[in-house]
């Protein structure tokens, strides 16, 4: 399967130049750009691991590309995303989030059904990757 979270998952995988262009758009909007990684891409796994703090006051997206590549050295077989935080009034939240790195094999998710009374079903989504312990989920 292909994990399609994020702003651009239906486009071909991003090159460094794609990352730079999109990160620069965020920076020019005044947003702080940040790099995060995970080995559990569950749709409700909100908190991916931070690769350092959001890059406040950084004017140049080249620095973002550099950090993505540094992160790849350590976590290249996992998911890495770039996100942009907007601190302006009425937002104070994320304004962009796109995946820039993914494992070669994406095992995806198991849908677990617990049949309840009547015809109700309680659904649970489980990441196949999370069957293994943290740190041992992708090659």
């Amino acid at each position: 399967m292909r994990l399609t979270q994020g702003t651009f998952s239906f486009l071909p995988d991003f090159t460094d130049e794609d990352i730079r262009l999109q990160a620069q758009y965020a920076i020019d909007k005044g947003w702080a750009v940040s790099v995060e990684w995970t080995d559990d891409p569950h749709p409700r796994n909100t908190y991916w691991e931070m690769w350092g703090h959001p890059m406040f006051d950084n004017p140049d997206a080249a620095a973002v590309v550099f950090e993505v590549n540094e992160c790849r050295k350590e976590h290249g077989a996992k998911y890495i995303r770039v996100i942009a935080f907007d601190a302006s009034p009425g937002w104070e939240s994320i304004r962009m989030s796109f995946i820039v790195n993914r494992p070669k094999e994406e095992p995806g998710f198991r849908l677990v059904r617990q049949e309840g009374e009547g015809r109700s079903v309680r659904y649970t989504i489980q990441s196949y990757s999370a069957d293994r312990p943290e740190g041992a989920r992708y090659a």
Partner: peptide, 22 residues
């Protein structure tokens, strides 16, 4: 309505598992 809700939520959860999206 109950039939619609039940089948729709099966569809929503299947699609969520297939894509990793909410």
């Amino acid at each position: 309505w109950r039939d619609r809700f039940l089948y729709c939520m099966e569809a929503v959860n299947r699609a969520s598992a297939a894509t990793g999206e909410v």
